[in-house]
């Protein structure tokens, strides 16, 4: 295997050098369930490619498989970046089918959704381990950001030395508090937005170009 590995390594070194400039960075959209990750991914994809990434829903764990939109070209202030957007399932430490029963779902469907959501979290964590070059961390600014999941994920992202942009989503809601999120993660820049309404997307794109360009 030695020779083969060496050969493979040297080829990948050469290709890395050749394409590193053009290779689009893979940016993972992470966050807890129902933070608006898919809404944001769709907003970005529609704005720059015309296509959507996946269905949005107010029921948590609508996204249960990571979905990718490749070669999204974002241009801001004369700076052009090409990124692959990965919309990931919401990360949580507990998935309970009973929470879906409130949304008029049959038990069988709720249990299946629960299982798929759990697989989705495993997938999201796996992507974070090796497959993303940067993270857009989406939080619902109308809810408390001091949670175990947020602390743990931000910690993992920091430990991986990945560039991270924190987005305080849902500023269109009355209970929204961007400052609360700034206080929770003072070491990172927090950008307010409403992905649903398209508010403040200009700043979001400028920051994406700055962070991941």
């Amino acid at each position: 295997m030695g020779l083969f590995t060496e050969l493979k390594d040297s080829i990948s070194r050469v290709t890395d050098k050749l394409f590193s400039a053009q290779e689009p960075k893979r940016i993972g959209i992470y966050g807890p369930p129902n933070a608006g990750k898919t809404t944001l991914a769709n907003r970005i994809a529609r704005d720059w490619t015309g296509d959507a990434v996946g269905p949005e829903s107010h029921i948590p764990h609508e996204t249960r498989r990571a979905r990718r939109k490749e070669n999204v070209e974002i241009e801001r202030n004369g700076k052009k970046v090409t990124i692959d957007i990965v919309d990931t399932p919401g990360v949580t430490t507990k998935v309970d089918y009973e929470e879906f029963l409130d949304h008029d779902m049959e038990k069988e469907d709720a249990v299946r959704r629960s299982r798929e959501a759990t697989e989705g979290v495993a997938e999201a964590m796996h992507w974070l381990r090796e497959d993303v070059d940067g993270v857009i961390y989406v939080l619902d600014s109308s809810t408390d950001p001091f949670t175990q999941v947020n602390t743990m994920l931000i910690g993992i992202i920091e430990s991986q030395d990945l560039p991270v942009l924190i987005l305080a989503n849902k500023t269109d809601l009355e209970e929204s508090s961007v400052q609360r999120i700034r206080n929770a993660f003072p070491q990172h820049e927090t950008i307010p937005l409403s992905a649903l309404e398209g508010d403040n997307m200009d700043e979001v794109y400028a920051k994406i170009a700055e962070y991941f360009g």
Partner: peptide, 22 residues
């Protein structure tokens, strides 16, 4: 129980193999 899961995020992040189906 079926439909109720508790996840250890650190463990999921750290393990090399990747759980694709439960």
């Amino acid at each position: 129980e079926p439909g109720q899961y508790e996840l250890n995020l650190m463990e999921l992040f750290e393990r090399e193999e990747y759980i694709i189906a439960l």
